[in-house]
Write a protein that binds this DNA or RNA. Structure first.
Length: 564
RNA sequence: UGGGCGGUCGCCAAGCGGUAAGGCCCCGGACUUUGGAUCCGGUAUCGAAGGUUCGAAUCCUUCCCGCCCAGCCA
């Protein structure tokens, strides 16, 4: 039953109303119908969540159906990835995994039925001619010279098309509707085309394949789908969807269209994603910068965050582009609750605590997750030689900087307050080689003396105990909000963010991370959320992917200062 | 100049004749051993113009703007 208190979008309203009127015997049945010609992306996630979500909400069912009517573009690699991604997102289609190709035989018989009713004909026009005959947006088309063939001749020709007597494109089967329709989809659309191609499931059994228009509605009907939810660009196809079903007098699902998702700073068209992969602008469909589910997964996103995102963006008919910040917010929200915290220094600068005994090591206690006490604590070793983040030291601190600088104090998280007493530089380059500091033994974390407050707290790592790691800093794949916003004469590829990946090779992380497993997610305190890369992982030297940064108020302040 | 669909805060999005929800972003402030989290507070008169009405984002009229359609792709 639909929650009548929860705010609902227009599709939920339609279904509620249908149920109220007793349509479909109170049944709700949807389907997610991907074409296996690419990997699933976040836009598909919206559709998956919508279709499976509605099924759950209204106590119905949702099928997974591969829309595999074009063997020249499809591949099993894609069907496998799609299965994996839908499952990863958290949805289950039970044993209802279907393929349009499962219905090729029935579809063929449907076509025969329409031919016998005198509502379809075999046309000999080639692609160019057909375009000419179709007319334009403002001029009606002309009837094909083959439109009035006899039913017998049509039957015979169609049979021979199926038998493989003709070459690709020599004939098509067309619906006989109305060449003057203002809706171009109704100007005798093609139902079947000849394609001598090997299909990933039916092999060479067929050499004629149904078009989307002829296959989709009938497949929905065969499966008993009640609400066939698709994107806006199919709105113009609805009259055709309805027309076929009416000719056949079969179960008639209702097609409902909603606006597809667009996300800022990325592209979501299959064609463009394919191009990024083929041109090797990224390392593959699962490159952590890709908006594919495989990419997000490798990047460290959680299915929960993506589902939350899909819920929050809503469902409507207006074209829109959601700010990627919305997605990142959902991610942080989820990771904040579940990711264990750990300290990692990405760009190390050496710190020597002058007054700390040489050779001494203390095991300090650090909280694993302040949001969840049940996650416990862990020991973190402290010693005389440490590393801190380069960003956490400024020789000439700007206004509002409350990290470390000469003569100033800062707290080392879970440890002591230290003071910078000297800056050692390389006499050649002038670059800082190490910081000499002193610590205040009275200020140990958790001790009764530790009431002294300092403005800043920074993370650190004990040099002798830290382990080395590679960290990959990912940023938006495109630097512009709208990748298509380009100067004349250039294309979207010029908007690829040259800094979308930065690899850091001399990072030092807490010893506890020696046990990190591929796919595990952590919060590197003050930096962001990171996950262990599952492809390039090696135990001796883990690779971490930055999933998303933490909200960085200080960065905002600096940005504002720069502008002023 | 054809047909279809849309236009509510910077970005999403509720609202369905009774006097503009919520989320994101942003800006303040509280708290804080993550400049994180959390908590308070702040920001729209609804594409435009007319009209109907006691009353309109919601109804009517006209206009403007955007998106989709001329694949034997989906």
């Amino acid at each position: 039953m639909p929650p009548d208190s929860a705010p609902s979008h227009f599709i939920q309203s339609i279904i509620s109303e249908d149920l109220k009127q007793g349509k479909n015997q109170g049944r709700v049945h949807t389907r997610f119908p991907p074409e296996p010609n690419g990997y699933l992306h976040i836009g598909h996630a919206k559709s998956i969540c919508l279709n499976f979500g509605i099924a759950t909400e209204f106590d119905g069912l949702c099928n997974l159906r591969f829309d595999d009517t074009n063997p020249s573009k499809e591949d099993v690699e894609y069907v496998e990835s799609i299965r994996e991604d839908v499952r990863w997102l958290g949805f289950d289609w039970g044993n209802r995994e279907y393929y349009a190709s499962d219905y090729f035989d029935r579809l063929y018989h449907f076509a025969l039925e329409i031919i016998r009713a005198g509502k379809a004909y075999v046309c000999d026009l080639n692609a160019d001619q057909m375009r000419e005959y179709r007319g334009t947006l403002i001029e009606p088309g002309r009837n094909s010279p083959f439109r009035e063939r006899s039913i017998e001749e049509n039957l015979n020709l169609f049979e021979r098309m199926k038998a493989g007597e003709f070459t690709d494109g020599a004939h098509t089967l067309r619906a006989k509707i109305d060449m003057a329709s203002p809706n171009l989809n109704m100007r005798d659309p093609v139902m079947y085309r000849i394609l001598h191609a090997t299909h990933h499931r039916t092999s060479d059994h067929w050499c004629i394949y149904p078009t989307y228009d002829f296959a989709h509605g009938q497949s929905d009907s065969i499966e008993g789908v009640t609400h066939s939810i698709c994107t806006l660009e199919f709105e113009d196809h609805r009259p055709l969807y309805d027309w076929f079903l009416d000719q056949l007098s079969v179960h008639h699902p209702q097609q409902i269209e909603f606006a597809r998702l667009n996300l800022s700073h990325t592209v979501l068209s299959k064609r463009k994603l394919l191009e990024l992969v083929q041109q090797q602008r990224v390392t593959g469909w699962d490159d952590p910068r890709m908006p594919t589910l495989a990419g997000f997964r490798r990047r460290g996103y959680t299915p929960e965050a993506i589902r939350m995102f899909c819920e929050r963006i809503g469902v409507a008919k207006r074209n829109s582009t959601v700010d990627i910040a919305m997605l990142e917010h959902c991610l942080r929200d989820d990771l904040n609750k579940r990711a264990p915290r750990v300290m990692a220094v990405l760009r190390p600068i050496k710190v020597v605590i002058d007054n700390y005994p040489e050779g001494q090591v203390e095991g300090l206690e650090a909280v694993n997750n302040p949001e969840d006490p049940s996650m416990g604590t862990r020991p973190v070793p402290f010693s005389r030689l440490l590393y801190i983040e380069q960003d956490d030291f400024r020789e000439e601190p700007p206004k509002g900087f409350f990290r470390l600088s000469p003569g100033r104090e800062v707290r080392l998280r879970y440890a002591y307050i230290i003071k910078c007493v000297d800056v050692v530089k390389d006499p050649q380059t002038g670059g800082i080689t190490e910081l000499r500091c002193t610590y205040d033994p009275e200020t140990k974390s958790g001790s009764s003396q530790s009431k002294r407050k300092v403005k800043g707290t920074i993370h650190w790592v004990s040099a002798a105990h830290a382990i080395e790691a590679e960290v990959r800093l990912y940023d938006h794949l495109f630097s512009k909000e709208d990748p298509d916003d380009v100067p004349e004469g250039t294309d979207w590829l010029t908007n690829i963010n040259p800094k979308s990946l930065e690899r850091l090779n001399s990072c030092r992380v807490e010893p506890i991370l020696a046990n990190a497993k591929p796919g595990e997610r952590y919060q590197f305190e003050r930096l962001g959320y990171f996950c262990v890369d599952s492809v390039d992982f090696v135990k001796e030297r883990p690779v971490f992917n930055r999933t998303v940064t933490l909200r960085d108020t200080w960065a905002n302040v600096q940005r504002a200062a720069k502008k002023a």
